[in-house]
């Protein structure tokens, strides 16, 4: 089990959080969503990244706030933790 540093509350155990899936998914507008590809992509298509993964976490048993995380999915290392609306401080190269 690992610990996650909530930007509001500090370091807490994983069991206090719930995983919110991949970050930066953009919901298609109703017009775009008419196109089944666009809607299916939003619902189902994920990068499932092996390496640096941008994702959302929810501090469900804490402050109940959402935040973003850049985590290495091989080592489970939290490379960056940032607030919604902010950009991660990670090297663009590392995202590849």
């Amino acid at each position: 089990m690992f610990q996650i540093e909530c930007p509001y509350c500090g370091k807490r155990e994983l069991t206090e959080y719930s995983y919110g899936g991949e970050a930066n998914l953009i919901r298609p507008t109703p017009v775009e969503a008419e196109e089944s590809q666009a809607w299916a992509g939003y619902l189902f298509s994920r990068t499932n990244k092996r390496g640096l993964h941008l994702e959302r976490w929810f501090h469900v048993f804490g402050c109940r706030k959402w935040f973003n995380v850049a985590r290495n999915t091989i080592t489970n290392e939290f490379v960056d933790i940032y607030l919604p609306g902010e950009k991660p401080q990670v090297d663009e190269q590392a995202k590849k």
Binding site: M1, Y19, R46, R50, E55, T73, I74, N76
Partner: peptide
Amino acid sequence: DPYVAYSNQGGFD
């Protein structure tokens, strides 16, 4: 485990 991982190990919880 609920999160994407390729670590070949799961959480103790």
